[in-house]
């Protein structure tokens, strides 16, 4: 087992996340893509923690913080999606154009 395998699939997951972030039209799916990116980062941290920092495992601590904050971010994000859905009756990103980009 090698560190590089884990890092490579983390990089792949990160890029899938970026793809979903840019192309998704459903706001909820954009939030899911962000969760994918955060998971990729977590995998990176865990891999480094196991192979490079096996004594202190600070990477595992870091990952727990990331998980915590990702949960808070998801809650806030979905609250905002709910609020916008009530007013606009859609979650299509292409329709959110009251403000110019």
């Amino acid at each position: 087992m090698q560190l590089q395998y884990f890092l490579l699939i983390a990089a792949a997951l990160f890029c899938i996340g970026i793809y979903g972030l840019i192309t998704s039209r459903n706001a909820v799916r954009v939030l899911m893509s962000i969760e994918l990116m955060l998971n990729a980062v977590n995998l990176n941290l865990m891999a480094f923690s196991n192979y490079l920092d096996a004594d202190e495992i600070k990477g595992q601590v870091f990952t727990i913080f990331v998980i915590t904050i990702a949960a808070a971010e998801a809650a806030v994000g979905l609250a905002i999606v709910l609020a916008i859905y009530r007013n606009r009756d859609t979650v299509d990103m292409e329709q959110f154009n009251l403000l110019k980009w």
């Binding site: 939030l31 971010e73 994000g77 999606v81 916008i84 606009r88 959110f96 009251l98 403000l99």
Partner: peptide, 18 residues
């Protein structure tokens, strides 16, 4: 209640989180 505020928050959240 203001759609502009919702929309600003959504854009800010998505760009910020990414």
């Amino acid at each position: 209640r203001d759609p502009r505020s919702n929309e600003a928050a959504l854009k800010y959240l998505l760009i910020g989180a990414s």
